[in-house]
Computed example of a mutant assay.
Amino acid sequence: MWSRSRALWASAAARFWRVAMPLARPAVAVGVSLALMETLNDIGASEFLGVRSLTVSIYTTWVTRSDLPGAAQIALAMIVLVIALVSLERWARRRQRYSITAQRARSFAPKPLKGKAAALALVLGLLPVVFGFLLPAGYLAVEAWKRFQFAGLSGKLLIEARNTTLSALATVAVLVCGLVVAFAARSYPQRGMQAVSRISTLGYAMPGTVLALGILIATAGFDFLDAQAREWLGVSTGLLLIGSGAALGYAYLARFLAISVGSVEAGLTRIPRSYDQAARTLGHSLTGTFRHVHLPLSKAAIAAAGLLVFVDCMKELSATLLLRPLNFETLATHLYGEAARGTYEEASIAALAIVVVGILPVILLARIGRNEQQG
């Protein structure tokens, strides 16, 4: 299609707007939706910069004013807003069809730039990297070094780093559930299973504060067992779900299951269905086919999903603030607390640790993408 547009003497701008953009519209829609969801979920930057977002309003209404019904009303308004925006975009492209294949997409040869065009492209590409990462990371590194020279490494940071084991456990649970959902959707491609797969990923569309609010109301109703145990048996069981961190782990599972399902599904789609048929012909069961065929061939996708989920769990702030057990601090909550007190040098080491860990999936995904292009 691209070569046909060039044969019709279409200009570069016309090819971009009439060919490239319509074909890229689904990907652009997904990217905009993800950016919107992440923006709605943000609470730290919005609060510190004085932006009165809906997420900040939910947090302050619940925690500061102790108005749980009011916070629930704002949360419902956010849910309606997210669903309306996503549905509107899907409705706008309901009659469009995208027939380009992955093989044809990889056949597009990049056009090398020279001279002023190359320099301009390089500068424009470096701007978000410099201002969005290099300068903030450099500042954090300088402040972290000053803090380390002055007082050494705080023991609290080691405890908070150890508390990230909850993120690791949640990552394992998210990966297992993502594998089950993605493989079930591949093995049973009926409309009902596809609907279940979509429903399982709705948690990512919900901001963490909204999700935490719903989980807290549900778990608080379950933790009435503590009052009943003290009344009937004279023994306190404690808050089994919130006090043990199970509620927070469930929040991670519900919120980030979409990342696991999406990554695993992307890996499974690269496996031809003829492999499934060959394995079943050789006598393997459905689980045997998954264990001997799909699992080995999708290791890269599973590893990428695990890294992405772990990093998101580690830096999740809004749900962690509201559902964490007492005296349970993570690197993200430590960073939030120090920044709220204005002691930014104390928060710099935790912030730098989050940045360093967050780079790992970026490097892995870049290498995977490069290998796919070479393949």
Rank of each mutant, 00 (worst) to 15 (best):
I359C: 01
A350V: 11
G262M: 11
A319S: 15
V123E: 12
S348L: 06
N163K: 14
S154E: 05
K146Y: 14
L213Y: 01
T101I: 08
G243T: 03
F310P: 01
E160K: 09
T343D: 09
V180R: 07
A35T: 15
A29V: 10
V181M: 13
A119G: 12
F131R: 15
R6Q: 14
C177L: 12
L365W: 03
I349K: 11
T64I: 06
V261M: 03
G50P: 08
R198G: 14
Q73C: 07
P325E: 09
L268A: 02
Y250A: 15
T39P: 06
L153W: 13
I259T: 05
I100D: 11
L307F: 15
A7Q: 05
A45T: 15
Y98D: 04
A266P: 06
M21V: 11
Y139W: 08
V264D: 00
F328P: 01
R230A: 06
R65I: 03
S5Y: 11
A182M: 13
G267F: 14
G178V: 05
A173F: 13
L23S: 00
G125A: 14
F224V: 14
A305G: 03
I43L: 08
W17I: 15
A13P: 09
T287R: 07
L335V: 12
R291H: 11
Q277N: 04
G214T: 00
T209V: 14
A340K: 13
A168E: 00
Q228R: 14
L326D: 06
A251Y: 12
I271N: 07
T39Y: 02
I359R: 09
I302H: 01
L360G: 02
K299A: 15
A246I: 05
R273Y: 10
W9I: 12
I271G: 07
G358I: 14
E372N: 11
A205L: 05
A301T: 02
A229C: 09
V28Y: 07
F310H: 09
H294L: 11
